[in-house]
Amino acid sequence: MAALVLMFLVQPSRHGSHLITEVLADPASRAALASCALALVGVTFTLLFARTRLHLARVDEESLLLVHQGMWRRRVVRLGPGHQVRLVAGPAGRALVFAPDGSLAAVLRTYREVWRRDDVIAALRGAGVEVDHEHRLNRAAEIEAAFPGSTGRFERRPVLLWSVVVPLVVAGVFLVAWFLDA
């Protein structure tokens, strides 16, 4: 992560640091503003990604505390008897955490390998949390049909995602070209 932050800050080019060269030449130029914006966005997203983590800690003999720090929000779920974790395999795999009343408590798309570790499964079962594996579900639409609310709109409809991403990328390319065209 440090190397990625350094790359966004330095922005290496054939003539040294692109960011420093443009800022020293003319701090108000389009190229300098674009370079500073790239550095700011790159460092921000790298640091947000670096802070993501999953932590499972024993609170007492009967419960565990699941803390998932994502890029944007933090989820804390107290796991105990009656809770259920369903591990969905396949390309759209995720861990689904259900409350004792059957409602969906958390959906964790990252850290799938953590849920398959023997020590994690032993800790969950020791706290009375049932752990099941779902091997029959491969696509997001199938997961949504089996467990409503467990997938996002863009996952279920990739065309919708592309209808948002493509115009944003095209607009971004034109914006960068306009900034760099002096």
Score class of each variant (00 low, 15 high):
His55Pro: 00
Trp115Phe: 13
Cys36Asn: 06
Ala141Met: 13
Leu65Thr: 01
Leu66Gly: 00
Phe49Gly: 13
His133Cys: 04
Leu24Met: 14
Arg58Glu: 11
Gly149Thr: 06
Arg51His: 10
Gly93His: 07
Cys36Tyr: 03
Arg156Met: 15
Leu33Arg: 13
Leu96Ser: 05
Arg156His: 10
Ala145Val: 08
Glu144Phe: 05
Leu65Glu: 14
Ala122Phe: 07
Glu134Phe: 05
Arg30His: 10
Pro81Cys: 05
Arg30Tyr: 07
Leu33Ile: 14
Ala31Asp: 09
Gly80His: 03
Val131His: 03
Ala25Ile: 04
Asp26His: 10
Ala95Ile: 01
Arg156Tyr: 08
Phe98Tyr: 06
Phe98Cys: 02
Arg74Thr: 14
Gly102Tyr: 01
Asp101Pro: 02
Ser29Asp: 08
Gly102Ile: 04
Arg136Asp: 15
Trp72Val: 14
Phe154Ala: 11
Gly149Leu: 08
Leu38Glu: 00
His68Trp: 11
Val107Asn: 08
Met71Glu: 10
Arg157Ile: 14
Ile121Tyr: 00
Ala50Thr: 05
Leu66Asp: 02
Glu142Pro: 01
Leu65Val: 08
Leu137Val: 02
Thr44Ala: 12
Glu142Gly: 04
Gly128Asn: 02
Pro81His: 11
Gly80Phe: 10
Thr110Asn: 11
Gly70Asn: 04
Glu142Cys: 03
Ile143Leu: 04
Phe49Gln: 12
Phe45Gly: 00
Gln69Gly: 04
Glu62Ser: 14
Arg117Trp: 12
Val120Phe: 08
Val76Arg: 14
Asp118Asn: 05
Arg78Tyr: 05
Thr46Val: 11
Leu79Pro: 02
Arg86Glu: 11
Ser103Cys: 06
Val114Ser: 07
Trp115Lys: 00
Val59Ile: 15
Met71Cys: 03
Leu54Ile: 12
Val59Glu: 15
Ala39His: 04
Thr44Lys: 00
Arg86Trp: 08
Val43Tyr: 08
Val159Phe: 15
Arg75Asp: 13
Leu24Val: 12
Ala122Gln: 13
Ala28Leu: 14
Glu130Pro: 00
Val164Cys: 14
Thr52Leu: 01
Arg30Glu: 05
Ala31Asn: 10
Phe49Trp: 11
Gly42Arg: 01
Glu113Asn: 08
Val129Ser: 07
Glu142Tyr: 05
Leu47Asp: 06
Asp118Lys: 09
Ala31Lys: 09
Ile143Pro: 00
Ala122Asp: 10
Ala34Gln: 03
Phe45Thr: 09
His68Met: 07
Ser103Asp: 13
His68Asn: 11
Val43Met: 06
Gly80Lys: 06
